[in-house]
Design a protein around this nucleic acid. Structure first.
Lengths: 351, 351
DNA sequence: AGATGTGACTAGAGCGCTCTAGTAGTGAGA
DNA sequence: TCTCACTACTAGAGCGCTCTAGTCACATCT
């Protein structure tokens, strides 16, 4: 007889005893596989409910050959990573996987985060906006399937799911050109993931039309760098300034707009600004930033699909798997037009 | 003989064989406990390194009577939760615990998040800014030690670690009164965790001095609500407006400032604004928001201390533990004075 | 010499599940 | 009546660790 004194942990054994069946049957019921009659199934679930039993995930993962978990290394407090996680949770669930999160903070490196995911024996690993060197990511990918989200890794050994950054900036530039702008500056993102691609997209779009004048303002990832860039923009003087700015991301754009407005200029009358990402804030009425929308939902679903395809296919057994080359998945961005862009004011005209 | 063909998972057994010792000894070395000579310890670690072995956390937690894990339910993408997580990671590590994260998203409820933490058999649970009813939190706390961070839960059954919200708003009001303001409005937080306390602090501080005029602007948690509040503020007309605003939080304050500036008013000349939280953005030069600093570092350390004290004390055995009543831990906030506050302009004077 | 420690190490029984192989029991087909 | 297939269920051997209860060799004290 199995006792169930309060305070003692309740296991499958207890549920089995209470329902009058074997442990194995309880396992069958909780895994939701065939092999139990409807009546028994309900009797087991009732017993479990009465005992407030829930299966121990540590034990079930240990017992089974598959852990069916995907590890995610993400930056805590990063708004867009939050959007991605939401999507990852949904689609992992749909594909029958669980997510194990590992946070990256200023004092907890991405390497450390990945280390705990490996120790949990996650079957696949998702890196959100990784800042590790390509070499490190590749050697990780040699051990376990990896998808790098937002951050391209060349070579094909690493799964990549990202937005078409270059296309995004082309959208920005074309929108501004369509409004009549000629002097369009890039508010650059420096060395951040995706920044090089966006720079390339900007250049390509600008060179398509000989009437356009290129100009790059050093920027960065946050409002802070956007604000700094605004100060150099202002220092150019009214005649030297571009009439429009295509920013590396929304936060940077928002910082830029803030400072420019504080200096007495008006957006979009005096300068048009386009962001990138479409973070929640960009849609607030008082911000109303025209921006390039990154599809977090889609990025998440493609990430899970890539990993699940690979994991569910191969037996993943001792037979050395063929050197898999994964095609990068590129998600098309779209332009969301709001109130931060307008045709350029004719020089000298006011109001 | 234990083979180590590539592709096969490497276990303690393999490391033991390679180092020429027993499994138990490898376990001793990896747990860092006494019982192995220095020479053997190094031999084992070398063998592990060569095999790229890392202990399986699922198995070690299963094998040991303690899991030494703390579960954290947090909102993904929430900046201040990010700061708290950073601190929690650091202090949990220091106390010998590991963190298991479970994200709350619009489509993944806090209840679901907690459910997975229980299934992982976390020894203690941390809720960041919980939005569950007090009843649910209490019944959870009856099962496992719980600390609710930022969100007070009366009764003493649930551990609470929070900022002294009332004191924070008193700091705001006193700072503004000291600058000479008399008409000080509260930019309210509605039903959010902590909002009621802050409202109370505001009222207390205002009533201390008969010269002060109370005024409450309905607000909320984000820039959006701050912006809305700014519009009702502007609608009051120049003579009816308060000269200063104490906001429920920084994001709300930032939205307020944005709209007020776009309407042509100047901050702090026309209206002083104080925030709450001291999020990173508040410190950016172009924002430079005077605010009440919440000590994320301290909130995190107290949370871990509360839980670790309780877990490391009791044998947690079948002997029913005494009904523990936990004193709430209240962390004092501090005022950070920046450039969004100044003495009120004398009516009618323009600078 | 014998008793007594002590440090280094091992055997082996769990931990709470999963999952393969196998045992009833039932009804249908020959 | 005897297969045969099929459903409902169980026994029991893992999964990769932890941890108690040892064993063994060697030094220390009387």
């Amino acid at each position: 007889m199995v006792s169930t004194r309060p305070g003692e942990r309740v296991t499958m054994e207890h549920v089995a005893a209470r329902a009058g069946v074997s442990r194995a049957l309880v396992s069958i019921v909780f895994r939701g596989v065939a092999g139990a009659s409807e009546a028994t199934r309900e009797r087991v679930l009732a017993a479990a409910r009465e005992l407030d039993y829930r299966p121990d995930t540590r034990a079930s993962r240990l017992g089974s050959s598959r852990t069916r978990t995907l590890g995610v290394a993400f930056s805590v407090g990063h708004a867009f990573h939050g959007d991605l996680l939401e999507s990852l949770y949904t689609h992992a669930d749909g594909a029958g996987y669980e997510l194990v999160l590992s946070g990256v903070t200023p004092s907890r490196s991405e390497e450390a985060a990945v280390e705990t995911l490996l120790a949990e024996r996650c079957e696949g690993i998702v890196l959100l906006g990784s800042s590790q060197g390509a070499g490190r990511i590749e050697s990780l990918a040699a051990r376990v399937p990896v998808v790098s989200v937002l951050r391209p890794v060349p070579g094909g050994g690493v799964g990549v799911v990202r937005t078409d950054d270059a296309a995004g900036l082309r959208l920005s530039v074309e929108h501004l050109r369509g409004l009549g702008h000629r002097r369009i500056a890039l508010l650059d993102g420096g060395r951040t993931a995706g920044a090089a691609e966006r720079r390339r997209g900007y250049r390509t779009a600008m060179r398509r039309s000989p009437a356009l004048t290129e100009m790059v303002l050093p920027g960065g990832v946050s409002e802070l760098e956007g604000a700094d860039a605004a100060r150099s923009f202002l220092a150019l003087g009214a005649r030297g300034r571009p009439t429009a700015v295509a920013a590396f991301n929304d936060r940077c754009a928002i910082g830029f707009v803030d400072v420019v407005r504080q200096a007495g200029l008006r957006v979009p009358r005096d300068v048009s600004v386009v962001g990138f990402d479409d973070i929640t804030e960009a849609g607030y009425p008082h911000v109303s930033l025209t921006t390039v929308h990154q599809d977090a939902e889609r990025l998440g679903s493609e990430t899970v699909r890539t990993l699940a395809d690979r994991l569910d296919r191969g037996p993943a057994g001792p037979a050395s798997p063929p050197p898999v080359v994964v095609e990068p998945v590129v998600v098309e961005p779209s332009l969301v037009v709001r109130a931060s862009t307008a045709p350029p004011a004719s020089r000298g005209a006011s109001s």
